[in-house]
Amino acid sequence: MSIDWQNFTPWASLLGGIAIGIAAGLLAARSGRILGVSGFVSGFFERDREWTARLALIAGLVLAPLVVGAFTAQPSAVPDVGWTAVIAGGLLVGFGTRLASGCTSGHGVCGLSRLSLRSAVATGAFMASAMATVFVVRHIA
């Protein structure tokens, strides 16, 4: 292992992380909701009275790169992988996050911030399998 110093952005990443933590914390403090993106996506299928509010949060998320892009150049948001990986990856992310009731935001940020054992196990599992997948794709296959 060697460190990729060229792409290493500790301060920007820390700052971005702080913004993510503030967003999740404010939503919890004001609305009593966990900012779990996979849950908000799943809520798309539930036509209850919070449907509009959930869609509004997703709209903010979709608009964000356009806002940031107006001030500074952004790296490519498009994955450099084939179509099979895109479709299989999307299905796995959609199904897996619902089976586990959370993703990087719900378990990784909110759950760990709440010191939940459940979220610690989930985060350990998806980090490990994601690293193993990249290892297989880049160094074996």
């Binding site: 990856g89 996050t97 990087t104 196990v121 989930a122 990249v134 794709v137």
Partner: peptide, 23 residues
């Protein structure tokens, strides 16, 4: 919880998108 997270990780590693960045 464990199986779902493992499956999610495979998809995340394959493409580099978790749900937030994908949206």
């Amino acid at each position: 919880l464990v199986v779902g997270s493992l499956l999610f990780g495979v998809g995340w590693g394959l493409v580099g998108y978790c749900p937030g960045p994908a949206l």
